[in-house]
Every structure is written in structure tokens, then in C-alpha cells.
């Protein structure tokens, strides 16, 4: 008999450890996953907004999933300014045409991509938004131009249900 022969005891030891590890993982996962967004939070996934009262050059802020959403009805100058920017000047290059399908309407999460503060309207070096927390400047397309934020303000999924109603989410 060779010394290295696998014995019944070795098999039982390995099998017990393996089943124990799988079992422990199976119990730990529900404990971790319970902290993720629950069904009631996910159920509030979309919201409809009446934008008929919004005049050009003004912004409406609505709450969606606990976060502010900026709905900006842009003036022609703002659109021109946003569309004239060269891609190489951008920290996070995105065309204004892609961010605002209908150029008059800019819809985006009013959340600074640095650490989540709400930027202020009509402020900053680029006539767009300015975050008071750590000094990020956004342009009239909500794109990051200066400061610590790494990305442009996020454009959520939205659509015009009719001429005066936007559905976010």
C-alpha cells in the first residue's frame, strides 16, 4: 500500500469543508442582498412631469427616485453655446446632440458626479451649473468643464408622453 493513498477520512474532510463553505455562502448572500433596493423602492421607478408652464431660460427641478432631476428649457444662445464646444475641450466628451435629442429640452439628474451634491442653476464659469460643495463647473449641456467631478451630469431615460408631459424613468 502506498502512503499517499486517499482515505475515506480525507474524502469526508474535503466534502464536509466544501459543503460547509457553500452553505455559509448561501446564508451570507441573503444577509448582504437585503441591503439592496427593495421592491417598494424599485416600484417608484418612473414619474410624469407637466412642463407646460416652463418658459425658455428656466429650470424645473423634480424629485425622481429621491434625486433631483433638472428639466431645463434652453434658450437659443444656450443651445448654440453647447453645440459650438469642441470635443477635445471636454473632460468627458459627449455631443450635445446626444444629450438633448430635442435641443430645447435638457433633462438630467441634478446630481454632481463628484460626491452627489445638487449643483446651482445659472452659475459657474460656463453659464451652466456650479456645484458649491467642491467647485465643479458644468456647461449649458450639463457637461463637466472644470473641477473634481469626473463625468457629465447623467441623462436619465425619459420621453415626451405628449407635447407638455415628460415621463422620467
Amino acid at each position: 500500500m502506498s502512503e499517499k493513498k486517499t482515505k475515506r477520512r480525507d474524502f469526508l474532510f474535503t466534502a464536509t469543508t466544501a459543503v460547509g463553505a457553500v452553505g455559509a455562502a448561501a446564508v451570507v448572500w441573503p444577509m448582504i442582498d437585503q441591503m439592496n433596493p427593495d421592491a417598494s423602492v424599485k416600484a417608484l421607478a418612473s414619474t410624469e412631469v407637466d412642463v407646460s408652464s416652463l418658459t425658455p431660460g428656466n429650470t424645473l427641478t423634480v424629485l425622481w427616485r429621491g434625486k433631483p432631476v433638472f428639466i431645463r428649457r434652453r434658450t437659443q444662445e444656450e443651445i448654440d453655446e453647447a453645440r459650438a464646444v469642441k470635443m477635445e475641450d471636454l473632460i468627458h466628451p459627449e455631443k450635445d446632440e446626444d444629450r438633448a435629442k430635442n435641443p430645447e429640452w435638457l433633462v438630467m439628474l441634478g446630481v454632481c458626479t463628484h460626491l452627489g451634491c445638487v449643483p446651482l442653476n445659472d452659475k459657474g464659469d460656463y453659464n451652466g451649473w456650479f456645484c458649491p460643495c467642491h467647485g465643479s463647473h458644468y456647461d449649458t449641456s450639463g457637461r463637466i468643464r472644470k473641477g473634481p467631478a469626473p463625468w457629465n451630469m447623467e441623462v436619465p431615460k425619459y420621453e415626451f408622453v405628449d407635447a407638455n408631459t415628460i415621463k422620467i424613468g
Partner: peptide, 17 residues
């Protein structure tokens, strides 16, 4: 971050945990 919040922003689930 979503896991820490238990939602899409700081809200009630964040407070209770």
C-alpha cells in the same frame, strides 16, 4: 453606493441601517 443606500439616494433605508 446603491447597496449602502438601499435605494437610489440617501433615504429612509439608509437612515434605519
Amino acid at each position: 453606493v446603491t447597496w449602502l443606500w438601499g435605494g437610489y439616494s440617501v433615504d429612509n433605508p439608509t437612515l434605519t441601517r
